[in-house]
Design a protein around this nucleic acid. Structure first.
Lengths: 110, 110
DNA sequence: TCGTATGATTGCAATATTGCGATTAACTTT
DNA sequence: AAAGTTAATCGCAATATTGCAATCATACGA
C-alpha cells in the first residue's frame, strides 16, 4: 500500500531508519560531501554545485535539516549550512556496534 | 518526476546512497537487528519475528541481499541469512571519515 | 508419488518520493 | 520605495516504494 507500518517497530528502529533514509539519495550525499569539502559552512553556493534546480536542492536541504543531519542559520538574505556532528557521531557508533557484533559471530555462521 | 537523476552523480555517491537507502526502512533495520541478536545465522524464523506478511519480509530480504548487506544460503528447503561484514565495515569507515572531517571544521563554523 | 512446508514471485492498490516551474517571502541595495 | 537577490513553498506530473493475497517453485517426509 505504500504505507510504512512504523507503529509496529520500536522508536529506535524508526529513528535510525529515518536518518538513513534521509541519507539514501545521491543528491543528499553530494550535499553532505560538498559541505565537508568546504572548510567552513556554506552559504548559498550549493545550487550552482549540484545538477538540480533551486527548488529541488531546497527540498533536499529541508529533509536533511528535518532529521538533524545539517544545521542552517540565516545570514542576511542568504542561509548558511553546515553538518551536525551529533548525527554522524550517532551513525558511526551505530555501525561500530553492529560491526563488532558481526565480527564475533562470523565463526559459527554460514 | 519521481525519477532520481543518478546519472549526474558520481558512482561512489550512488553506491553509498543505495546502501543507505536499503537501510532506511524500519522493517529492514529490524531484520538486521534480529540477525545480530541471534548468535548464528537465521533460517526462516524471520517472518514470525516481524509484524509483516511473508511476502513482505521476503521482499525486504531481497533488497538487503541486492545491495550486499546480508547473505543468504539455501539450506535444504529453508534459507539461511546472515549479515555481510564487509558492508558494515564500509559504512563504519564512511561515517568515521566524515566525523573526523566535521570535527576539524567545527571551530570556524556557524 | 503425494501431500506438506518453505520461501520466492506476481500483480495489484495505496501511498511516498523526486524534480521542477512558478510563485512567494524576506532581506539588501540603490 | 523600487529593483534585485536569495531561498522557501506550492502544485503538479512522473515514478518508486510498501504491503499483501495469491500463486508458483522447490525440497522434504511419509
Amino acid at each position: 500500500m505504500g504505507l510504512t507500518k512504523t507503529e509496529n517497530f520500536t522508536e529506535k528502529q524508526n529513528d535510525i531508519a529515518k536518518l538513513l533514509k534521509a541519507l539514501g539519495h545521491p543528491a543528499r550525499i553530494a550535499i553532505i560531501e560538498h559541505l565537508l569539502k568546504m572548510k567552513t559552512c556554506v552559504c548559498g553556493d550549493l545550487v550552482s554545485e549540484l545538477p538540480l534546480a533551486q527548488a529541488t536542492v531546497s527540498q533536499h536541504l529541508k529533509e536533511l535539516k528535518n532529521v538533524g543531519i545539517i544545521k542552517g542559520t540565516v545570514e542576511g538574505n542568504a542561509v548558511c549550512y553546515c553538518l551536525d556532528e551529533n548525527a554522524f557521531d550517532y551513525l558511526k557508533g551505530y555501525f561500530s556496534n553492529i560491526l563488532a557484533d558481526v565480527k564475533c559471530q562470523q565463526s559459527n555462521c554460514c
